[in-house]
Simulated scan of single mutants.
Amino acid sequence: MSATAGSLVSKTEYLDYQLPEKIQNICAERDNCPEIEVKYLKSNHSWIDTTINARINSLVVNSKPTESAPIKTPSTQADVNAAINDFAASQFQDMPEEVSWAYSLTVTPVYLGHVNNFELFEINSYVFTGGAHGMPYSEYLTFDLSTEKQVTLDDMLIKGKKPRFEALAHDAYKTWVKTVADDVSSYEKNWPFMLSNNVTLTDTGINIRYQHYSIGPYAYGMPVLSIPYSELNKVIKPYFIPK
């Protein structure tokens, strides 16, 4: 994706957070502190910061993210701190003293660049509370500078064209399956196709991101399906197709 030519300047700032003294004391005894890293966006577009940072707070407070789940009630800083305190404390409530690994929680916004008038971001998070592996999560966010609003897949689609978009996404899914399995129909019986609304614009088309276990086992990561603009003519509004 293109880099923005001076219109958007972004950086991240760490959440100002300190483990409660009680948890710090337990950490000192066991030499095994939870790893907490939450970053917020700080750009020269405060309206984008507000939306992204509210979503980051929501992911921290809920810590078991649900793809595209709307924010019903914005989380306060007190909510965020309380959620992290509970997350950190739960390590010592749930785990035996001899355990050598620590709980981990990270949430970070990433600037992806821009396409036309659209600024593109991704929020990445990772939660580890034991077991074979942690759980990564990734969410795209698209912003229209001309309207100063967040853009969703439904905003991009021409009215009545979602079934056609879903069919194109299904074709892209079959193409992806061929890279990981010998037989598409057998694979789809175990990991059926589903449409995700987690999309972003690129220079060449629309990318659709899937979370772990959505359309494949954990080992296959978070697949990205790509639909080129050449297939999206009369499916998405011309406004969203780069000139």
Rank of each mutant, 00 (worst) to 15 (best):
F121H: 13
E122H: 15
I123A: 01
I123N: 00
N124G: 14
Y126L: 07
V127E: 11
V127Y: 11
V127K: 11
F128N: 07
F128K: 07
F128V: 09
F128Q: 08
T129E: 15
G130L: 07
G130N: 04
G130P: 05
G131N: 04
G131L: 07
A132K: 10
H133E: 02
G134W: 05
M135Y: 11
M135K: 04
P136Y: 02
P136W: 01
P136I: 03
P136E: 00
Y137P: 00
S138A: 07
E139P: 00
Y140E: 02
Y140T: 01
T142R: 10
F143G: 09
F143Y: 13
F143M: 08
D144N: 01
L145W: 03
S146E: 14
S146Q: 12
S146V: 15
T147K: 09
T147Q: 05
E148K: 11
E148N: 13
E148L: 12
K149L: 11
V151D: 05
V151C: 07
T152F: 10
L153P: 01
D154L: 11
D155W: 02
D155T: 07
D155F: 09
L157S: 09
L157P: 06
L157F: 07
I158A: 10
I158H: 09
I158Q: 10
G160C: 13
G160V: 13
G160S: 13
P163D: 11
R164Y: 06
R164W: 01
E166M: 06
E166S: 06
A167P: 07
A167L: 10
A169S: 11
H170K: 12
D171L: 13
D171N: 13
D171P: 08
A172K: 06
Y173L: 08
Y173R: 05
Y173Q: 04
K174F: 02
K174R: 04
T175Y: 11
W176K: 02
W176G: 02
V177T: 12
V180E: 15
V180R: 12
V180A: 15
A181R: 00
A181S: 09
D182H: 07
D183T: 05
S185I: 01
S185L: 03
S185M: 01
S186R: 10
S186H: 08
S186W: 02
S186E: 11
K189Y: 06
K189E: 15
K189P: 03
K189D: 14
K189M: 11
N190E: 15
W191C: 02
W191V: 14
W191I: 04
P192S: 12
F193Y: 15
F193L: 14
